[in-house]
Design a protein around this nucleic acid. Structure first.
Length: 215
DNA sequence: AACGCTATCAACCGCTCTCGC
DNA sequence: AGCGAGAGCGGTTGATAGCGT
């Protein structure tokens, strides 16, 4: 019950500029990550969670605000197709964008189901390439991490083999589309390989065009 | 001008994950 | 191994801006 009391005493709702300033100073003093300490020391009466969210989504340096570029939209679509609603993972590939922003963008601009609610028409999904690692992965149950890893690795291996058979050269993702990647986030082994291969070697324009009529 | 509807997005909630003990 | 605390994630909510009637 004490938890509930603390919770109800916490301030909620929109952040004021002065609160942002205090939070910013506190993060600089106590370091990013010590949210419980920051929450306590700041005197903002905001929960650690709330502080973390505010910092991560708005106050963190190098946050990019405003409209998504065509490249970003394209990348979101491709990554979502591959990863599903793994917003933090997708956002990690979009410098300056947050998971919350990507999630909101998807739900408002790109989510067909939601777009259908209004006047926008649902667009039939295009035929998928049956040789992609993603499709191969669907053959495996992905309930557990180990299953996922095995599935992913098997899919990647066989796909790379096929690609080599077709004499395909797999370019480094870092050099493509002029899309910079966050230096502070290491690629997740195996999964990232698939993400990058899929995202950067297919025809992204087709994927984007699927969504265009509904926008 | 007033009203209703829709789109947008900041923030919250609840769950899972991770790490230290 | 088990437990608890804190951090992180994805889903959802709610305020409000904008537009049409």
């Amino acid at each position: 019950m004490k938890d509930k009391e603390v919770k109800t005493r916490m301030k909620r709702g929109f952040w004021k500029p002065e609160e942002d300033l205090i939070l910013k100073n506190c993060v600089e003093t106590h370091g990013e990550g010590n949210w419980a300490t920051i929450s306590e020391k700041s005197g903002l009466m905001r929960s650690g969670k709330s502080c973390r969210l505010r910092w991560k989504n708005y106050l963190r340096p190098n946050i990019k605000r405003g409209m998504m570029s065509e490249d970003e939209k394209d990348l979101i679509i491709r990554l979502h197709k591959l990863l599903g609603n793994r917003w933090s993972l997708i956002a990690g590939r979009l410098p300056g964008r947050t998971d919350n922003e990507v999630k909101n963008f998807w739900n408002t601009h790109l989510n067909n189901k939601r777009s259908c609610r209004g006047k926008k028409k649902h667009v039939k999904s295009k035929e998928v390439n049956t040789h992609s690692p993603q499709d191969k992965m669907q053959e495996y149950p992905a309930e557990t991490v180990s299953n996922q890893e095995v599935a992913t690795k098997t899919a990647l291996d066989s796909w790379i083999e096929e690609m080599q058979d077709f004499n395909c050269s797999l370019l480094s993702p870092l050099s493509m589309n002029n899309v910079p990647f966050l230096e502070d986030e290491p690629f997740i082994p195996i999964l990232d390989d698939i993400v990058l291969l899929e995202a950067f070697t297919s025809t992204g324009k087709e994927a984007w065009n699927e969504f265009q009529p509904s926008l």
